[in-house]
């Protein structure tokens, strides 16, 4: 990779459409870590709030909130609008380290929660592995993007994380939500906003080149 494409995150929505399946890019800026337990909590918070459920569990009026409103109403601990989730549960940092080993986890476990989060403004996800058709459809509908980082390269990727701070769900330990400042974080566009899927095309291309 001689020509290095660096993209600042979070980015303008318009920029999403420029990212094409197969692009190898480097992200610089802010990412949020969130994996299984954090996703479940975010998802449940939205569903409960929108069904009008009161704290006492009584049914109320159904409402729909935007990502910004969910944050302002105190339903979610961050405004997910235009932000990117990194599916990550790091190892603990030693003294002097920003973060421990920090590679991606398997994305498919987040599939159940992802379409709702995308509908609330989440624009990107970094993980590894396949996504469900429902997620791919939601990526196209909301013009979002799915990146893969190299699975099992946790030591290498930790070097690209310059700051890390737990901002929510502290009790979840490694699964808490972290706000992270990254520099030249290497990712590959797997599913772009048109629904092209590198996991299918890359293997086909490789095999047809034989």
């Amino acid at each position: 990779m001689d020509s290095k494409t660096v993209i600042n995150v979070p980015f303008e929505r318009a920029q999403v459409e420029k990212l094409k399946s197969g692009d190898y890019v480097y992200l610089t800026g802010t990412l949020y870590s969130a994996r299984d337990a954090a996703h479940k909590r975010l998802y449940d918070s939205i569903v409960n709030a929108e069904s009008g459920m009161t704290m006492g569990g009584e049914a109320g009026n159904k409402t729909t909130f935007s990502g910004k409103e969910l944050y302002e109403e105190g339903i979610l601990p961050l405004d997910i609008t235009d932000n990117i989730f990194y599916y990550l549960g790091p190892t603990p940092a030693k003294e002097g380290q920003v973060i421990g080993s920090a590679g991606p986890t398997t994305s498919s476990r987040m599939d159940k929660y992802t379409p709702l989060l995308l509908s609330k403004g989440l624009v990107g996800m970094i993980g590894k592995g396949k996504r469900s058709q429902a997620v791919i459809d939601a990526i196209v509908e909301h013009k979002a993007v799915y990146f893969a980082a190299v699975g099992g390269a946790g030591a290498l990727l930790s070097k690209c994380i310059k700051k890390s701070e737990v901002i929510a769900y502290d009790d979840l330990g490694t699964e808490a939500i972290r706000k992270m400042e990254v520099e030249d974080f290497p990712v590959i566009v797997v599913i772009d906003s048109e629904g092209n899927n590198l996991y299918e095309t890359a293997v086909e291309d490789y095999n047809s080149s034989k």
Partner: peptide
């Protein structure tokens, strides 16, 4: 090939800096 290159770099960093090879220990 590029990914295997990253994995080798990752192993070297893990060894030198005492960071787990993968976060899923």
């Amino acid at each position: 090939k590029q990914i295997l290159g990253q994995l080798i770099e990752n192993m070297d960093i893990a060894k030198e800096d005492g960071i787990p090879i993968c976060q899923d220990t």
